Amino acid sequence: MLTEILTPAQVGLYHQQGYLILKGFFNPEEINKLYQTALDDNAMRNNALDVNDKSGKKSKLSLWFTPGNDIFGYMTRSKKMISAVKQCLGGEAPVCHFHSKLMQKEPKVGGAWEWHQDYGYWYKNQFIFPDEMISVMVALTEANKENGCLQVIKSSHKLGRVNHGFAGEQTGADMVMVNNALKTMELVYVQLEPGDALIFHSNILHRSEANLSDRPRWSIISCYNLQSNLAYNETSTAYKVPVDVVPDSAILEWDAESLSNADFLKKENDPGLKDTGWEKQVEV
């Protein structure tokens, strides 16, 4: 049974500004175990994708669909995660897991992520309802301006979907609309401590700078979908399978499998990176 862990004011803030920061959502012991597993698990390294930004700098990400019995699966399926997601999404349909990804920005070389909406990618997967999709970023290391923390445009989810084109190997939002949004709404640097969580709407505009510091910036982002939200160009079926919720204690107390069993994404299979033709009409 899910419990309400967010206050009505927090849920209202999520809907008003398109994001919500939860300080200390995971404790130091949990984060240490997650981070060490990310560093040590060969499956993470072997399935990491290099994604170039416009300047040619690379960010690494490892993306998988089905949340398993590994430590990241336990995090993704934890009662507090699913409870918070369900409160923000609302509705009667159960919460499903679309995918999770380990974001790896290495010191000095980690690339930028251009301005985009997650739904700018997921529109190509032909999900119908962006309001029924949400992401939760959990900081594994400190995230600040120096190492390329996330930036969001507060309340920009209210714009609806913005046209996207290609920016390097990324999908980038139409900069005419981004610049208009920046004239109208507040730019926020989301500076996080390890264990802090950022919940954000699929249509909020966000970006991050390259990591030019001497410290890494690593985070896990888990993306969720309500079962009522169908996708018509998505080969994975995880997005419509209700999450098998586990107790919060699973991260520290349960035996965990390796991620070698996970269904990782291969770059050539990503619909968001396929050219549909209309991307060339967008200035990014």
Rank of each mutant, 00 (worst) to 15 (best):
I128W: 11
L159I: 11
Q191S: 10
S213R: 10
K183C: 09
A181H: 02
N203M: 14
V176F: 14
Q126P: 04
S208M: 05
N211Y: 03
L140S: 03
G172N: 04
R215K: 15
E146V: 11
F200Q: 02
F200C: 06
M177E: 15
T171D: 02
L150H: 00
D131I: 07
V176K: 14
S135P: 07
P130M: 07
Q151H: 15
V188E: 11
V136A: 14
Q126F: 14
T171E: 04
L205F: 01
L192W: 06
R207G: 07
V178A: 06
I153L: 12
N144V: 10
A143Q: 13
L187D: 03
E193D: 15
L192C: 00
D196N: 04
I199R: 00
S135I: 08
A197R: 02
G168T: 12
N147H: 10
Q126N: 12
V188M: 12
N125C: 12
S156W: 03
G195M: 07
H201L: 08
E193Q: 13
M137C: 10
T141P: 08
F166P: 01
R161P: 09
T171F: 04
S213M: 05
A139I: 02
H164P: 07
S155R: 12
G195S: 09
P194Y: 06
E146C: 09
R161K: 14
V178T: 04
N144T: 10
N144K: 08
H164N: 07
E186P: 01
P130I: 01
E186C: 02
N179V: 02
D196A: 09
A143G: 13
L198K: 01
P194R: 11
N180D: 14
D174F: 05
I134L: 15
H201Y: 05
N144F: 02
V138S: 10
R215C: 02
H206Q: 07
L192I: 09
V138P: 03
G195T: 07
F200V: 02
D214H: 13
V138A: 05
A173F: 04
V190K: 09
N163Y: 13
E142R: 14
H206G: 03
L198R: 00
T141H: 09
V188C: 13
E146K: 15
G195E: 08
N163I: 09
L159W: 03
R215T: 10
A143V: 06
V136W: 01
F200T: 01
Q126W: 14
F166A: 01
L150V: 12
E142L: 10
D131N: 15
Q191G: 01
N125A: 11
R207A: 15
N211S: 11
A167E: 06
N203P: 05
V188K: 08
T171A: 13
S135K: 04
L159C: 10
V176E: 15
L159A: 09
D131Q: 14
G160D: 00
E146Y: 13
A167L: 05
E193R: 08
R161M: 14
E132K: 13
G160T: 04
H157N: 12
Y189A: 08
T141D: 12
A173M: 05
E193W: 06
G148C: 06
I128A: 06
N147A: 06
R161I: 15
N211A: 03
R161C: 13
V136C: 12
M175K: 12
V190S: 11
A143I: 04
K183A: 11
L198N: 02
H206C: 07
G165Q: 09
M185C: 07
H157W: 03
I199G: 02
M185G: 01
A181C: 08
K183P: 00
Y189N: 15
N211M: 04
E186G: 00
